[in-house]
């Protein structure tokens, strides 16, 4: 993974996501999930495009199972948009870039 996508874990989630000044888009993913892989380049593009406006992060649900459990995640990829530490929007499945951008538009 390159670009501006931040890798977060159960340990860093609170500081990086919940306490972030910027809104945060978190991509919950795992290595065994095909659609997660399909959506990865879109998430990277968004991280470049929204640089300075939205923090884009990824959380591996295998390595950090606590956080997805807390948010009741039982399907991946799930994208959750956080604003001020609260869930503002949630998208499940490998949706198109425009679909995510619409959700981000509402957030900003």
């Amino acid at each position: 993974m390159s670009g501006s996508v931040l890798q977060v874990t159960d340990d860093t989630f609170e500081a990086e996501v919940l306490k972030s000044d910027l809104p945060v888009l978190v991509d919950f993913w795992a290595s065994w999930c095909g659609p997660c892989r399909a959506i990865a380049p879109v998430v990277e593009e968004l991280s470049e495009q929204y640089l300075g406006k939205v923090k884009v992060a990824k959380l591996n649900v295998d390595e950090s199972p606590k956080t997805p459990g807390q948010y009741g995640i039982r399907a991946i990829p799930t994208l959750i948009m956080f604003k001020g530490g609260q869930v503002a929007d949630q998208i499940t499945g490998a949706v198109s870039k425009s679909h995510i951008e619409q959700a981000l538009g509402k957030l900003l």
Binding site: A30, W32, C33, G34, P35, C36, G72, I73, R74, A75, I76, P77, T78, Q90, T92, G93
Partner: peptide, 17 residues
């Protein structure tokens, strides 16, 4: 319940069960 129990991909979401 999409994403909260309803799924369309066993390969993706099986490990949650």
């Amino acid at each position: 319940f999409a994403g909260r129990g309803v799924s369309y991909c066993g390969t993706c979401d099986g490990p949650f069960y």
